[in-house]
């Protein structure tokens, strides 16, 4: 008699732990059931992201770069698995995803030098500006592994923590990638990945007063959250084709300007 296979049940990533939705709901997909996250899952994820943020942004940029690079290593190690999961063209997509992680890993300690300035004010003051992460970023992901990474990597490279709502149709990929994150060196809470229906969870993310910015896939999505997201003036970033990686990072940075007199 053939051995009975053990099918995997998929979980989400919240606060560094792989968990099911607190709602106990799932969505049936070909390949298995995935968690259908709820308002409270959004709440928990934002809470974890907020808690993780001070520590994450305080790490050295070099360390953040290493951690993003470690994600690339972990993904590369499971590239066959992801290629299969993604179906046709999956191999190329995984390769691109790994390369994207490597590319951003290198940015972690460089974008500051591209975005920072020393400002020649007409007074005896030293004046400089530098980027600082916005804080907790909420994001909706596009399809596939690449779509997921584009939603979260620029944010965390720049010192933000992130709550990503996976693309509805790519929930299994997202759940698998959650395991990659969970087994890498990313501190708990820095990346949170929720699966289910974006249309159901995005409004809660948009409403949440402790979310500083939203990365959205398109203009209609921006229009849909505008009313609620404005309540605490979330920064709204809409994906645009051809945008450079540095600009992706910048759009999730604040600019702080400092003045100090120059004297004895």
């Amino acid at each position: 008699m053939p051995r009975l296979a053990i099918p995997k049940t998929y979980k989400m990533l919240i606060g560094g732990a792989l968990v099911r939705s607190e709602s106990g709901r799932a969505i049936e997909m070909s390949g298995g059931n995935v968690c259908r996250s709820s308002r409270k899952d959004v709440r928990d994820a934002v809470k974890s992201a907020r808690a993780a943020w001070p520590g994450w942004q305080a790490r050295t940029a070099y360390n953040r770069g290493q951690i993003v690079y470690r994600l690339a290593e972990m993904l590369e190690a499971r590239s066959g698995e992801f290629a299969e999961l993604l179906g046709e063209g999956g191999g190329a997509e995984v390769a691109a995803s790994v390369d994207l992680l490597v590319h951003y890993a290198g940015w972690a300690d460089k974008y500051q030098q591209c975005l920072g300035t020393v400002n020649p004010v007409a007074m005896p003051y030293f004046n400089f500006s530098f980027p600082e992460p916005m804080g907790v970023v909420g994001a909706t992901a596009n399809r596939g592994l690449n779509g997921l990474l584009e939603a979260l990597v620029p944010a965390i490279t720049g010192g933000n923590t992130v709550v990503v709502l996976a693309d509805d149709g790519s929930a299994i990929v997202a759940s698998e990638f959650s395991e990659v994150v969970a087994t890498s060196d990313v501190p708990g809470g820095v990346v949170n990945i929720l699966t289910g229906l974006q249309s159901e969870t995005l409004p809660h993310l948009a409403k949440h007063m402790d979310v500083n910015a939203l990365v959205l896939t398109d203009e209609p999505q921006r229009q849909s959250v505008l009313e609620e997201a404005t309540e605490n003036l979330k920064r709204l970033v809409v994906s645009a084709p051809g945008r450079s990686s540095l600009e992706q990072i910048r759009l999730l940075q604040e600019t702080k300007t400092v003045w100090h007199p120059v004297g004895v």
């Binding site: 400002n119 004010v121 007074m123 003045w259």
Partner: peptide, 23 residues
Amino acid sequence: AGVVWANTFNKFDPASPFGGYKE
């Protein structure tokens, strides 16, 4: 905060970026 004045306050210059965080 978007502008931090250390040992000074309310200084402005065209070369100096100005603007806020949060609300």
